[in-house]
């Protein structure tokens, strides 16, 4: 089975037999992969009808809900990992969601497009317009991404909320990693992947 590299990286971080919650689980690819390879159990949360049908077809437990409405249906510390891939930038209340992740899960895993990538900086800095890149392909007026951030922004938000970052890695739009990117993640990383927990 081929899997996007960011999902591959996440699955390497996850201990076998864990209970996981995937916020904005899409068509269930990651959860399905984790179930097959790591014998995880748990749920995906998703809002889109088509994705719900895809998850059910893939035998994934999926709950149709709006993440912005909170995770009140889940008790504290219900999961080993609460994950959110490529969704942070699309929620209305990222800080609230982050804290909910830390309430319901022992560890959190988040991936998001790095707005501090050099191409974004160049387009905004020199071009004077909102960046349109491979990881952020929509125009400012029709994007669902309303809370874009850089690596530094995210790390500041974590520190403000007493969240300790355990692991960070960056990949490019094709979810590959190379040396330059590892040396200059803020500038060259297109997608950021974090694992974190409460301090």
């Amino acid at each position: 089975m081929s899997l996007r590299t960011d999902l591959q990286i996440i699955s390497e971080w996850i201990k076998p037999g864990s209970r996981v919650l995937d916020l904005g689980c899409g068509d269930g690819t990651l959860l399905h992969y984790l179930q097959e390879t790591k014998q995880t159990t748990g749920y995906g949360l998703e809002i889109d009808d088509e994705n719900i049908v895809a998850c059910i077809k893939a035998n994934i437990n999926v709950i149709q809900t709006d993440i912005d409405a909170g995770l009140s249906e889940f008790e504290a510390d219900s999961f080993d990992y609460v994950m959110m891939t490529q969704t942070l930038q699309a929620v209305h209340y990222p800080e609230k969601v982050l804290n909910e992740m830390m309430r319901t899960g022992h560890e959190g895993i988040i991936t998001f497009p790095n707005f501090g990538h050099w191409k974004s900086r160049a387009q905004l800095g020199f071009g004077g317009y909102m960046p349109v890149t491979r990881t952020l392909p929509d125009e400012w007026y029709n994007t669902r991404n309303i809370h874009l951030c850089t690596l530094r922004d995210f790390e500041r938000l974590c520190s403000k909320n007493n969240i300790k970052i355990l692991q960070r890695t960056v990949v490019d739009h094709a979810h590959r990693s190379y040396l330059g990117m590892r040396l200059f993640p803020h500038l060259l990383g297109e997608i950021a992947i974090y694992r974190f927990q409460r301090k």
Binding site: R19, T41, Y43, I52, C55, I56, I60, N61, V62, I63, Q64, T65, E73, F74, E75, S78
Partner: peptide, 18 residues
């Protein structure tokens, strides 16, 4: 969702469509 919540509390397998 009250039913779903109870099932989640028990960590049972459940899917919910609205």
């Amino acid at each position: 969702r009250e039913i779903v919540k109870a099932l989640l509390d028990c960590a049972h397998d459940v899917s919910y469509a609205a």
